Simulated scan of single mutants.
Amino acid sequence: MGTTQLEAAQEPKYWHLRTVLAEALDSEFAVGEVLPNERDLAARFGVARATLRQALEQLELEGRLQRRRGVGTTVAPPRIGVPVGPAEGDWPGAGNDTWRTIGCVEAPAPAAVASLLNEGRPGYRATDMVHTIRRVRMSHGQPVATELLYVPRDSVPGLPELLPPTAHPRAVLRELHRLELESEDRTVELGSARAEDAKQLERLPGAPVLVVTTRYVTGGRVGAVAVATYRADTCRLTFGDTGAVEITHHDDERRQAS
């Protein structure tokens, strides 16, 4: 088989510079330290300023650098370690759940979520209204994730018809907790931040994110679906032997390797 065009392509200059800069960040700079200005950096590495900017933007996207108005470009702190999802066997909002509820509406679920909710629910239609609870998670004073929890109306039949807006999400969660949780499973995929999620995460729309989708099964059917969006520049997801999901950061890996 001949060499493909992709295999023959050379590494872009900015990407090579990004690798060199990343090594310099690890060996020469401390967290919070301000980098030299672009002119000095370009001269040091013998590259055009346009190439340097591309490399710096890539490192910022990866969470290695922060650009602060009036300060300059600084070395970002290590990624934050936070557990993902509630403790095994718990509904969202139960026990030591660290998510904060910020709103609840009733609307049809997105097509992908509606497909999951349809499992074990005869007669369910994609246009059926579901309770949609938005939650956010903070860690060390910054938002690390936002979540949409989708709960079909027939999962919480004891919910009163008329509720004040502030009580609605609490009432939905309370009724959900009355059900027996049989199992839960999660999938993780790379995605791009939608406008509302980006706003909650203090990122730009289209920024890379990690999307964790959780199905909660009760009574032989999917009782609720949670779609949590984590900042990819802040969080790194790893799976343990038990199937639980945890987050580690670069400093942990460096300490284990030394």
Rank of each mutant, 00 (worst) to 15 (best):
L117P: 02
V211K: 08
A112C: 02
P77E: 14
A171W: 00
H168Y: 10
K199P: 00
N96P: 03
A145T: 09
F45G: 00
A87K: 15
R203K: 13
A195R: 12
A207N: 06
E182K: 12
P86L: 03
G220P: 07
S183I: 01
C235K: 02
Q10L: 15
S27K: 07
A55D: 08
A107P: 08
L210E: 08
N118H: 10
Q256G: 00
L181N: 09
L190Q: 12
P169N: 05
A76W: 11
E182L: 14
E88C: 06
T74H: 02
R125D: 11
W99A: 13
R44T: 08
D90N: 15
T74C: 09
T187P: 01
T3D: 03
P108F: 07
P108L: 07
P108Y: 11
A167W: 12
G85E: 06
E180A: 11
V105L: 14
R221E: 10
R39T: 14
Q54L: 13
E119P: 02
E33T: 05
P152H: 09
P92V: 06
G95V: 08
L17R: 12
R44Q: 09
P143N: 13
T98C: 04
P110T: 12
V188H: 02
T213Q: 06
G123H: 05
T146K: 01
A109V: 13
N37C: 09
V227F: 00
R221T: 11
Y14Q: 14
Q54Y: 09
P143Y: 11
A228D: 07
L61N: 03
V156T: 11
E11N: 10
R100C: 07
P165I: 12
W91M: 05
A48R: 15
T242L: 12
S139A: 15
D128L: 02
R194S: 14
E28I: 10
A257C: 02
L56V: 07
T213A: 02
L25D: 01
D251N: 10
L210S: 04
L61M: 10
V212D: 08
A126Q: 07
A112V: 08
A50K: 07
D128Y: 02
T132F: 00
T242M: 06
H16M: 09
G89I: 05
V217A: 14
S155C: 04
R153H: 14
E180M: 04
L162E: 14
A244N: 03
L181R: 11
P12K: 11
Q54A: 12
G46N: 06
E7V: 14
G93A: 02
Q5H: 06
A207C: 06
M1W: 04
E175K: 03
Y150N: 10
T127R: 12
T248K: 01
G72E: 04
F29A: 05
T238A: 02
E57K: 03
V211G: 01
E88Y: 13
V209Y: 04
L116A: 03
V212E: 08
A42D: 11
V245K: 01
V84G: 04
T101D: 04
Q54F: 06
